[in-house]
Nucleic acid binder design. Structure first.
Lengths: 349, 349
DNA sequence: TTGAAAGCGCTAACAG
DNA sequence: CTGTTAGCGCTTTCAA
């Protein structure tokens, strides 16, 4: 027989049956009264409610979940930064993505559980997750397959396309980068350089390909500096490399920083290396960092729209969960170029 | 009779009883085999495990929780920023606090659920939370009382002290501010100004009191600029007010920015107003923003140690949960002044 | 060494 | 209109 696992020191919690006994009614009646279901006389309903209130009754959420067959809980894990599993929140992109995911889910009655970046399904097998959001999986990581094998619906970026149970939302990396480069060119840039993370997400692969194609189509030289790890230090170092390295192809006259860095620091690095922005160098940062609006000059950014990605994706996931669909579905979200002073060539010279 | 709430299209999940039938054993035996409990013959144990593996069995976490009497889930809600319930993640302080809370909890087998800032217990009553962490409650908000009334253990800062079931961890605002001001004075500052958020957290109240006492004790003039809302714009505006306002008491020669802002932007604002840091103005920012290490000059920061606060607090909470203690317990975490170039007076003038 | 049965707290089907 | 009862999937006691 099961002994109720009573915590020492805690008063045992009030259960439905306690309320029923107190009110002189049955469990069913009280349940119906509290949930607003069934057809009960107003008097009885009020009696049940009153007793529940008086006794401080709160339904046991776990029991409800068991009955309902789902927990209304979704996991959230990021693919990148497995080496430092919690730093992702310090990136404005992921902070916004995470917040908007939680907000959207909660609005639909689902709660979001934070999972460490790069962790695997079996590390949190004890959580009753209805689905998992995998933000920016890296190429070849096991997490997505792991989840699908376990029969857990997955929501992620487009790299999961085609696997049953895997749904996606993504921004079009190629279009985004082409748009930014076209803008720079229109403002007069002829030798745009790029700073790119070394990571292996689908987005970064798309960025690299788009940049190469764009340069090739215009017979322009490529100039790429890779950053080893996330963080302002490495990115600033890469910016300096991009601005100073290899003399032969000429100094770059524009810079597209795809790695996440603080815009004011990027500007400062440019200045330090003898560039006045935007006179000598047009600058665009792929960034969600709000400081971009407050620099002098203000910094042009390419936003990957994490909030829209999260909102659209989560809505789609909810729909899939409630309808029990299983075929892959996907949605594109457009990126947005916020043109500010740093990328507008001043009139004449 | 209850019809199993079957999702359309989903293959029904493998249950313990299915594995038992397949293996020709009883539920009990299979359960014991998989959990490593009981005394079973190695052969039987292996047979059960093999069947489970083959059938892709995964235990139903909700059922286990119901049995266990708890969900190993803790909620995380912040008191501030109720007007924009998800922006807290974009603050480096909360990003680190949140990440470290989740990390510590998960290490002890608890998962963290993100809740919107300023929300109330009843909005997430359906979640089986074993406890809730309330980060930086604001004076007079209902959330803590709400939770305690519902019998849910609460972990928060020291402002909850004395209420049964409420445990806390905090940094000593007075000591932190005194330390920073003493440092500035030692470097030669005589007219330190301060930028402070308008918010009503216990920490900010402590900061204000400490600053006033410190100035009074030295017969120095107070100069305080308040920021209306979080965000770089308002804080930078307050910085400019602090640096330019009221001529009578003389220009400030040091600035302590308690509101969270990007250090490079604060430096830039100082420069724009004719101050060269550190020659004309010693600068200390209360900030966890890593950009402080990369500015020129590098920026002195006062760290509130969110990661340590989270770690210590969460460990304490876990201990309380497992032991069922109910008396309030509390811990202090020391703040840390990272002295960098912006607050070191250059030799002579 | 193994299995039958009780029961965690709740909701829903069905009988009264 | 209300109450009795089965059962969600699991673990654990107790008997065989």
């Amino acid at each position: 027989m099961t002994e109720a696992p009573r915590r020492p020191g805690k008063p045992p919690r009030v259960r439905l049956v306690d309320v029923a006994r107190e009110a002189g009614l049955s469990k069913t009646t009280v349940s119906a009264a509290l949930n607003g279901t069934g057809r009960l006389s107003p008097a009885v309903r009020e009696k049940a409610r009153e007793a529940a209130r008086r006794m401080g009754y709160r339904p046991n959420a776990t029991a409800r979940q068991l009955r309902a067959g789902r927990a209304r809980l979704i996991g959230y894990v990021v693919g990148e930064r497995a080496h430092a599993p919690w730093t992702f929140l310090e990136s404005p992109y992921f902070a916004q993505l995470t917040g908007a995911t939680a907000a959207t889910a909660l609005r639909r009655g689902y709660a979001v559980v934070l999972l460490p970046a790069g962790s695997l399904q079996q590390e949190w097998a004890d959580l009753p997750l209805d689905a998992v959001v995998v933000a920016d999986p890296v190429a070849g990581d096991r997490i997505v397959d792991d989840l699908l094998a376990a029969g857990i619906p997955v929501f992620s970026d487009r790299s999961v396309e085609g696997r049953a149970g895997a749904h996606w939302v993504d921004v079009d990396a190629s279009a985004a980068i082409r748009g930014a480069l076209d803008h720079l060119r229109q403002e007069g840039a002829r030798r745009p350089a790029m700073v790119l993370p070394g990571s292996a997400t689908g987005f970064h692969a798309g960025v690299l390909a788009a940049y190469r194609d764009w340069c090739a189509a215009r017979a322009l030289p490529e100039r790429i500096a890779h950053t080893a790890t996330p963080g302002n230090g490495p990115v600033i170092a890469a910016v300096e490399r991009a601005l100073t390295g290899c003399e032969k192809s000429g100094r770059p006259d524009a810079l597209l920083v795809v790695a996440e860095a603080s815009p004011p620091l990027v500007l400062e690095a440019a200045r330090r290396n003898g560039y006045e922005v935007p006179r000598d160098l047009l600058l665009v940062c792929v960034s969600e960092d709000m400081t971009a609006e407050h620099t002098r000059p203000t910094t042009t950014t390419l936003s990957l729209r994490p909030q829209e990605v999260a909102r659209v994706g989560t809505e789609l996931l909810m729909a899939v969960l409630e309808e029990g669909r299983t075929e892959t579905s996907g949605v594109w979200v457009p990126s947005r170029l916020d043109v500010r002073e740093s990328s507008r060539r001043p009139r004449s010279g």
